[in-house]
Design a binder for these strands. Structure first.
Lengths: 119, 119
DNA sequence: GAAACATATTAGTAGCTGCTTGTATAAGCT
DNA sequence: AGCTTATACAAGCAGCTACTAATATGTTTC
């Protein structure tokens, strides 16, 4: 697949473009993508913002009223955020409180900065 | 569905949870989501990383060899990144060079920092 | 223990996403 | 002008995603 008649091509004039690029770390890529895909959904991002807004944790029942989807959908969304390392969860009686991680805070902070800078 | 006897509930003991949350700016949310969904895809994120790595712009043809999808898919992916404001494009002869925007640099930088801090 | 509440899990599915293939446009070369 | 190369656009579709509905699990209160 990667065998090509390099000498012929380079002698002809294709040398101004199409030079091979340096590889990028595929593990880092996968890690970043987990964060980005977890955040890149309407419901989940809205939930994450609500979680990040409240300093001492938000109860699921609060979140349920804030976004317009079913209880099940909220639970699934929060699980996904948890798996991605964007929120922590703590159980207190029959309620469960979610808090943002530093990862979430950093990314949301960057997004806030960008929005501020572009307007 | 949302009509409930508030006085009864609050008198009983449901006041430790389920307080209404402060609203979040839906315009900001949409703006952020455009960035996140644009970045939150394998092909597009890989392309964005390649674009960000090369300082003086990358030609589409270079990118095509780097990721494992068709020319058309690369073009579509780059268009999406452009629309989202993550890359700029400049035409030079028959080639087109892409460069990262400051927005992209900021977000990628944050992701790099996070990865560095967590390992 | 039973009923009510809070959350999670499972299964099923509508709709979106991202690809391929084919075609169009534009620029360079002969 | 005609051919080739570089890129974009359009249509079609396979596979994924995120929802709902139903059910299960755990907690509190009586």
């Amino acid at each position: 697949m990667s065998e090509s008649t390099v000498t012929d091509e380079s002698a002809e004039g294709a040398d101004a473009c199409c030079v091979p690029l340096a590889d990028i770390d595929s593990e880092a890529l996968a890690a970043d993508l987990q964060l980005l895909t977890a955040m890149g959904n309407d419901t989940r991002y809205e939930l994450l913002r609500y979680v990040a807004n409240a300093d001492d944790g938000v109860c699921v029942c609060d979140l349920q009223d804030a976004v317009g989807v079913s209880q099940s959908a909220v639970s699934q969304a929060l699980s996904r955020l948890y798996t991605a390392g964007l929120v922590t969860r703590r159980k207190e009686g029959s309620w469960r409180y979610y808090e943002p991680t530093e990862t979430a805070a950093a990314l949301l902070g960057t997004l806030d900065d960008l929005r501020g800078a572009n307007e």
